[in-house]
């Protein structure tokens, strides 16, 4: 897996890694990807993909308003909140 760039993929995954972690995880993932290469020998010509073992289509319910969590309940586990909203760092200057 010469083209597996752990630094780039970790950034896509939004996970900050220390240089030491990058080195260790990168080596382990290279090993695992080597094993996964095995799949290339399976003949999948004309085979449809399976996303779910029992695909159900168009699962709908009547569009009726129901009670849900209160604002206070929804914010109860938030690391930071104010004025009934989640607090995040500034996005725009």
């Amino acid at each position: 897996m010469s083209d597996f760039n752990i630094h780039y993929i970790a950034k896509l995954a939004r996970i900050a890694l220390s240089p030491d972690e990058e080195q260790r995880l990168g080596a382990q993932l290279g090993h695992i990807l080597g094993y996964i290469e095995k799949l290339k020998s399976a003949d999948v010509t004309h085979v449809e993909p399976t996303a779910h073992a029992f695909p159900l289509v168009n699962v709908t319910r009547p569009d009726v308003v129901e009670s849900s969590m209160t604002n206070a309940e929804a914010l109860r586990n938030a690391p930071a909140h104010a004025g009934g909203l989640f607090v995040v760092p500034k996005i725009l200057d």
Partner: peptide
């Protein structure tokens, strides 16, 4: 910024196996 908050939170809060699998 939010992205740095996400990455740092996940870097500190998740263990090695979970990081390995999310990255894979």
């Amino acid at each position: 910024d939010p992205m740095e908050l996400n990455s740092r939170t996940r870097g500190a809060g998740l263990g090695p196996e979970v990081k390995r699998r999310i990255i894979l």
